[in-house]
Design a protein around this nucleic acid. Structure first.
Lengths: 229, 229
DNA sequence: CGTAAATGGAGATGATTCCTCCACTTCTCT
DNA sequence: AGAGAAGTGGAGGAATCATCTCCATTTACG
């Protein structure tokens, strides 16, 4: 009963073929299954978080659990394999923001692009924002991420567009807040987080005369109820 | 090994003595234990959420699980008994906000008081904001809450201080976001949510020239890591 | 002090998860 | 083509964990 469903978002790029412990490359069918497992894990983690069972992932990949355990020693190893790649991407996003000409624009772009990644990937939120899972790996990633975020923020502050009292740790906390809004509303609207990001950006500006137009209409009471998990 | 620890915050008011099914009042020791159970449940739900086991609550109350099951048919019944009271309090907060003279002031006060309640009570957040638990009871409560919130918001909008594009469902979503920030930071600071509420209030104003001073300094990187669950 | 009420907490019951194991299938290489 | 190595699925062992029941014992109270 295969439920494998093919590619996911732009974040996916095929992993390089893996070799066996003794250096021998994987048999063709094994390699194919390995890719399926990785893709399935990305999708399932993204949709339902890191707590999902390996049985779920196996089922989604259309393989047996045994097959997963043949390639990954245990759950943790699979989780790492997936999120090393995804965390890397967020770092690139921050570095890229610095190349934008207008500092405020760079900041907005960074908050939005990261928000998009987090909105699409519950697993990524849980690993990178909530903590508690795979501490070491994540701490290392954060050490690369922090200076980049800092640069984005400070550049916008010198420029006068970002209020002075914002610091690095505000970024993950804002993303955590947006993630919570996403979680609560995603059953009904994928992009509600944009409404709240726009609000928060209005808060981050040094000053403003009028509200920025919100990109999403508020949920109706009925939608809000329907979205309840 | 009793761990019963006495009163909690202002939210506590002793429940009226309960009567047995046949109308007979409870024996003195039974009544005492019933109160202990209720208090313990409030405390434990508040600290660790509704998912805690009844064993935990029993232990915290210094009674056996059997004693809980003697008073409450099952888990769900206990949860309801606790949160009916707490939800009621939030409703009162909204109604009270309308009595404040300045509309913006009323709104700020309401968001803050509710934020405080949610920050102190993880169980309340889970029941009232996240949904998924005790749908019916909560839906009923929400029907009373909604008009009150609406009144608070509309009054501030007519007054010109609150931006026009905010609606009722923004309130619970903002509280959800603050709750997420609280959850992530509470191990290190109880009041971080105030920093982010202040930011959000700056977003909700129709216009402003300067940032409002933030009531809490940002977390340091080290604190942020240490706060990880 | 006798009796009805109340109690504690071990354990029955039922989920749930991770991971192992091995009879069987599928590849690959000569 | 056929032997042997590599790979596979998924039932089920082992561990954990939560709800709720049961009853020998303790406690309150007329």
């Amino acid at each position: 009963m295969a439920v494998y469903s093919g590619g996911m978002s732009r974040r996916t790029s095929p992993s390089p073929p893996a070799a066996d412990a003794s250096g021998r490359p994987l048999r063709a069918d094994a390699e194919r299954n390995r890719q399926r497992i990785i893709t399935a894990a990305q999708e399932v983690f993204a949709q339902r978080g890191i707590e999902v069972t390996l049985d779920d992932i196996a089922h989604h990949a259309g393989v047996g659990v045994g097959t997963i355990y043949r390639r990954f020693a245990n759950r943790e190893e699979l989780v790492e394999a997936i999120f090393d790649k995804e965390i890397q991407r967020v770092i690139e996003l921050a570095e890229e923001a610095l190349t934008r000409e207008d500092p405020w624009d760079g900041l907005v772009h960074f908050f939005t692009a990261a928000g998009q990644d987090f909105a699409e990937d519950r697993g990524l939120r849980e690993v990178l924002l909530v903590g508690s899972h795979g501490k070491d790996r994540v701490a290392a990633a954060r050490d690369r991420l922090t200076p980049a975020i800092n640069a984005v923020l400070e550049r916008a502050q010198r420029h006068g567009s970002l209020r002075d009292d914002i610091e690095v740790t505000d970024f993950p906390l804002i993303q955590i807040m947006l993630g919570a809004a996403t979680q609560r509303t995603k059953a009904v609207s994928q992009d509600m987080w944009q409404r709240y990001l726009t609000l928060i950006l209005d808060a981050l500006r040094t000053s403003r005369e009028r509200p920025t137009a919100l990109p999403q209409p508020a949920l109706s009471q009925e939608e809000f109820d329907r979205a309840a998990p």
